[in-house]
Design a protein around this nucleic acid. Structure first.
Length: 1065
RNA sequence: GGGCCAAUAGCUCAGUCAGGUUGAGCGCUCGGCUGAUAACCGGGAGGCCUCCGGUUCAAAUCCGGAUUGGCCCA
């Protein structure tokens, strides 16, 4: 690409982006940029690894775009940024996908297929998925180290998990224990609570009578899981509640039933009872110790019967719902289990990991629990213990992968006992900065406070094997188990001969390894880690620790991580837990927590709703840079993003303005062979607007930097875009056009070139992290061989005090406000900008700074409003037929007038007084309200009103406000220039019709119907000739000829290029 | 069922911390400009600030409750 080459008229993102991809490849842009910062201060960013199933959706795209933005920005700030991407590749989701692929039904199929072969399939699948994700991320223009991602399935990475786990064990935080867990009976594994999805289902709803042993009557319980009745161990009541014994009639029989006082009515109705009588009231507390018979004793002889079982206890999970007495089975439910442990009761769980009753379930042995519901209800009915049966619609947990209904059972699991170090966890939270901070102090803290021990074991195949070896008759004490931390240690301790550098430590390999020490042989426990443990070690796994200690010492902990808010309970938490357990500290210093990508209606994107927007489609429709700008224009802190095609299209439009601003000076620079290297903008003869736009650039740079440091890139982007649109395009370029169109070389033109060049070069640097493609395209075109090979090697701009000039910016802000009002006044007077006006009066109502700024800059205001003179009238004087109302300062009016303050305010708003005096206002308010008021200077600010028939328009700027009036009286002088400019415009249009080159000379033939006008126009022939590059006025024979109607005057204009005329001679 | 977050113009969002007459961009509409031209500029319309209560002279803003949506948990 050579300097100032012509570019497409229209910004076409896809063309730019494809060109830039090729260019980056050709110059090794990414590698060069990294090398360029290799000696910079290290910055340790850690990528939260996306899970390798499915493809990149809008949320992942947002996430990676944010990461790319901040990485690029930090590099421009001079940091040597760690940018290793990661992938989370183990776990049940991939196993189930592979099972589907292979047509498997359950674990037996896997065993038959062979564990090792199955693991190999999983790895292949995960690798395929990884490739797809990488291609997506690259296509978004994300610059990370794609050649060397960290993968949670690499032995080096898996070792990081082993090491962390061993550290936790050294601190005494690892134990095996029984817990009530959510089990997927198909996957035959525990699944984490957050992996349980709740669906609406229909289940049995039964009321069961438990006959009391030493008293007349029965306790009544309610459940939706008849299959847990065999494991019933106790009944829970609310100690503070009142229970009633009722004698109720049904089918000619009288029964005595115990129910919560608030539940009697409903429960009896469910059971179809008629009359009843309350015969006793008893506090829950008093019922403790009452014994009852197990309702399925005959069917399940092994049902609980030991010390303390089949009695009433209090529990805090009891509510006055259904019966107010709760069937409790510590072998199943989580709260039942916890209360059972407290009470020291035996745990009875007759259900296997596959959800099938074991022998202990007596009659029901061999049957799948949900299938046994029917038989159990039948038996309860038969033995007279069923009070009522019905069905109920409710939410019930299902496996997130295979949608099988989960069951609660008690099994042996491995835990990291984070509850032992909860205080430490809570302290460590304080060591990281969160954006937004409240997320840390409220949501995260709450979650950590309530978090139970971390169940890290899964009874599956595709995961990091838990590195624990136990002897055959293990006591359960961790002292007597071996926890291996590294591959090196593994090779040293196992009986078999393995090479630590090449050994794969997946289940297929390590399950066969044994350790023999002091005559005892240890075998590995079968489980693998919960996949959340994998990513929890990412901060050291990313940098190859524990094999690579040096990098660890240099970088750890992470400077920054950024993920969506669902990771509060996920990665933010797992890292805190593992980091604290293994390292004693939180492994990240800053967290940027963003939201989720929702659809245009604010609903989450999902397959079932059919509202998913693919990033690929966005790229096809609008391009990468516009997509990125849209994603980056959204608040990244905590809030969800509503996707919007319209906003994305708008971003493309904004970039098109950038494109126009960039391509606008190119033809001139080319023509004049402008050489940026020979003109330093500091030495150029810059004019007011040049200095102004350069100052604005400094302010915008400083503003952006501040926002970027606070992780508010959406505000930074907003500042940048409005700089380009408002300041550069709408003001600077408009102003500077005449100077570039000048034919002769001039210091003014050169200063404009130098200014534009400098502004554009710095502006694209500011764009570089946001929209890397268009920034590169423009940068390369501008700098040619003189710049870096890529814009991304540039430093982030710093505010230059040389150019920064706040007073000048204030002046121009005032001028622009007055100009806008002036244009409006002109429009009201129907006098187009082409026609000069004799005078513009700017009447300043309030504001010393405003008056000073405008008075300073009447020349530029005159130029922009095409006025012969501009007069600024200061606030001490009045001009024209103005009336005044007043705006109230409610913080003063409120206390003064109390509940009448609102009415006083309205009266002030409605007042129209002719002088700016408190007396006049007071009189007007009194008129309106019928009472006297005392106003002070501080309470009111005068607002002026212009009579409707005067062409005046109000404006506000800086510290004040005012009005602009335009005097549109015509003089011959003005008519002369006005008509001349009308001619110029039309000749220009005809030049364009002919598609003439900018430099082309022409001959112009003017034939104006009205002699007076013709004479007036002739006075400006010189101006016309200069503006339209005409060498001759006179008869044109073959030229482009056109009739025009200008302000009621007919004129015929003919234009002929002179080169053509000569050629035809 | 519980915790946290959000709701302001047709759309996307500021304003809410620190109560005092609701703003921007886009879209719509009317007009202007014309060697950046599929660009650019100006005017206008468009808001019971989700709803119901409370505190206050005064609430988009503070408090309580509801509705809808999002995340997390049960």
């Amino acid at each position: 690409m050579s300097r100032f080459d012509p570019v497409d008229d229209q910004y076409d993102p896809q063309t730019v982006e494809e060109g830039v991809f090729d260019y980056w490849d050709a110059v090794d842009a990414y590698e060069q940029t990294k090398d360029h910062r290799a000696d910079g201060e290290p910055y340790f960013f850690v990528d939260g690894p996306p899970y390798t199933s499915g493809s990149a959706h809008m949320g992942t795209t947002w996430n990676k775009t944010l990461k790319d933005l901040y990485i690029r920005y930090l590099r421009m700030q001079g940091y040597d940024v760690t940018d290793r991407p990661g992938y989370d590749m183990h776990g049940l989701p991939i196993e189930t996908k592979v099972e589907e692929r292979l047509g498997f039904e359950n674990k037996k199929d896997i065993e038959e297929y062979g564990e090792e072969a199955f693991i190999e399939e999983c790895k292949e699948f995960a690798d395929e998925q990884l490739q797809g994700l990488q291609d997506d991320f690259k296509s978004f223009g994300v610059w990370m180290d794609w050649d060397d991602p960290y993968k949670t399935v690499d032995p080096e990475y898996m070792e990081a998990a082993w090491w962390g786990f061993q550290q936790a064990d050294d601190r005494g935080l690892v134990e095996q224990g029984q817990r009530s867990i959510s089990q997927c009976p198909r996957c035959e594994t525990a699944i984490a609570n957050n992996e349980v999805e709740y669906d609406h289902v229909q289940d049995p709803s039964i009321y069961v009578k438990f006959s009391l042993r030493e008293k007349e009557g029965s306790l009544v319980i309610w459940t939706t899981t008849p299959w847990t009745i065999p494991a019933n161990t106790f009944v829970a009541v609310d100690g503070d509640a009142t229970y009633q014994a009722v004698e109720a009639q049904r089918g000619g029989q009288t029964e005595t039933l115990y129910l919560h006082e608030d539940c009697v009515e409903d429960a009896l109705e469910q059971g179809g009872y008629g009359d009843y009588e309350v015969i006793e009231e008893v506090a829950g507390e008093e019922m403790v110790g009452w014994e009852y018979d197990h309702p399925l004793r005959e069917e399940v002889p092994d049902a609980p019967s030991g010390e303390g079982t089949l009695q009433v206890y209090t529990a805090d999970y009891v509510e006055a719902d259904r019966t107010g007495l709760v069937h409790s089975a510590p072998g199943h439910g989580e709260v039942d289990f916890e209360r059972g442990q407290e009470l020291g009761l035996d745990i009875f769980c007759p259900v296997g990991p596959d959800g099938v009753y074991e022998d202990a379930a007596g009659k029901y042995a061999g049957e799948f629990v949900k299938d046994a519901d029917e038989a159990i209800m039948g038996d309860l009915e038969a033995n007279g213990n069923l009070l009522a049966r019905d069905t109920v619609h409710h939410d019930y947990g299902h496996c997130w992968r295979c949608d099988t209904g989960i069951i609660q059972i008690v099994t042996d699991q491995w835990f990291i006992t984070v509850t032992d170090i909860k205080d430490e966890l809570l302290d460590n939270i304080e060591e990281s900065e969160w954006y937004p901070q409240e997320a840390r102090d409220v949501r995260f803290r709450d979650f950590v406070e309530d978090s139970p021990d971390w169940n890290v074991s899964r009874q599956r195949y595709w995961g990091i094997p838990i590195p624990i070896w136990t002897p055959e008759d293990w006591s359960g004490e961790m002292d007597e188990a071996i926890v291996v931390g590294t591959r090196e240690e593994l090779a040293e301790r196992v009986d078999q001969d393995i090479d630590p550098d090449t050994v794969d430590i997946h289940k297929g390999t390590v399950d066969d390894l044994t350790i023999t020490e002091d005559g005892t042989t240890y075998t590995r426990v079968g489980d693998v880690f919960d996949v959340w443990l994998d990513s929890s070690v990412a901060t050291w796994g990313t940098i190859g620790f524990p094999s690579d200690e040096e990098t660890f010492e240099e970088l750890w902990p992470a400077d920054l991580i950024m993920e969506a808010h669902d990771q509060t309970r996920g990665w933010f938490w797992s890292q805190l837990g593992m980091g604290s357990a293994a390292m004693g500290e939180v492994p990240y210093e800053q967290v940027l927590m963003h939201g989720w990508a929702l659809d245009e209606d604010g609903r989450k994107m999902s397959k079932s709703l059919g509202n998913i927007v693919e990033p690929g489609e966005a790229i096809d429709r609008h391009g990468r840079d516009p997509m990125r700008l849209f994603l980056l224009s959204v608040n990244p802190q905590g809030d969800d993003m509503k996707f919007s095609w319209d906003e994305m299209a708008e971003m493309k439009r904004r970039l098109n303005i950038l494109w126009n601003v960039f391509r606008f000076p190119l033809p001139y620079m080319r023509m004049d062979e402008f050489d940026p290297e020979s003109v330093d903008v500091r030495d150029a003869e810059t004019e007011l607007v040049d200095e102004w736009v350069l100052s604005r650039l400094q302010s915008v740079t400083a503003e952006m930097t501040e926002y970027m440091e606070d992780f508010e890139q959406h505000k930074a982007l907003d500042a940048l875009l409005s700089f380009v649109v408002e300041d550069v395009s709408r003001f600077y370029v408009q102003t500077v056009r005449d100077r570039l169109w000048e034919e002769d070389d001039s210091s003014s033109k050169e200063a404009a070139y130098a200014t534009l060049y400098h502004v554009l070069e710095e502006t694209v640097a500011l764009f570089a992290p946001f929209s890397p493609f268009i920034a590169e395209e423009i940068y390369q075109n501008l700098t040619g061989d003189a710049g870096f090979d890529t814009v991304h090697m540039k430093d982030w701009p710093d505010r230059s005090e040389f150019w920064h000039d706040e007073a000048l910016e204030a002046d121009v802000a005032a001028v622009r406000a007055a100009e806008e009002a002036g244009s409006n006044a002109r429009q009201q007077a129907e006098r187009s900008l082409r026609w000069p006006v004799t005078e513009v009066i700017v009447d300043v109502t309030t504001g010393e700074d405003l008056t000073a700024s405008l008075a300073n800059r009447t020349d530029i205001l005159a130029e922009r409003l095409n006025a012969r003179t501009v007069t600024v009238v200061d606030p001490e004087e009045d001009w024209g037929e103005i009336t005044f109302s007043a705006e109230a300062d409610m913080s003063l009016l409120g206390p003064e007038f109390g509940d009448e303050a609102g009415r006083v305010m309205n009266a002030l708003n409605d007042a129209r007084v002719t002088e700016q005096s408190l007396d006049a206002l007071e009189a007007a308010v009194e008129d309106e309200l019928g009472r006297e008021v005392d106003l002070t200077e501080e309470m009111v600010e005068f607002v002026r009103h212009t009579p409707e028939d005067i062409s005046g328009t109000g404006f506000e700027a800086l510290d004040g406000s005012g009005s602009v009036y335009v005097d549109t009286e015509l003089t011959e002088d003005i008519e002369s220039e006005g008509y001349a400019r009308e001619v110029i415009r039309r000749v220009q249009e005809m030049r364009k019709d002919l598609d003439l080159d900018i430099e082309e000379r022409i001959a112009v033939d003017l034939d104006i119907d009205d002699d007076r006008i013709a004479d007036l126009v002739r006075e400006h022939e010189g101006l016309i000739a200069e503006e339209v590059r005409a060498d001759e006025f006179g008869a044109v024979e073959d030229g482009h000829r056109k009739d025009w109607e200008v302000e009621g005057v007919t004129m015929t204009i003919a234009v002929e290029p002179l080169a053509a005329a000569e050629a035809s001679d």
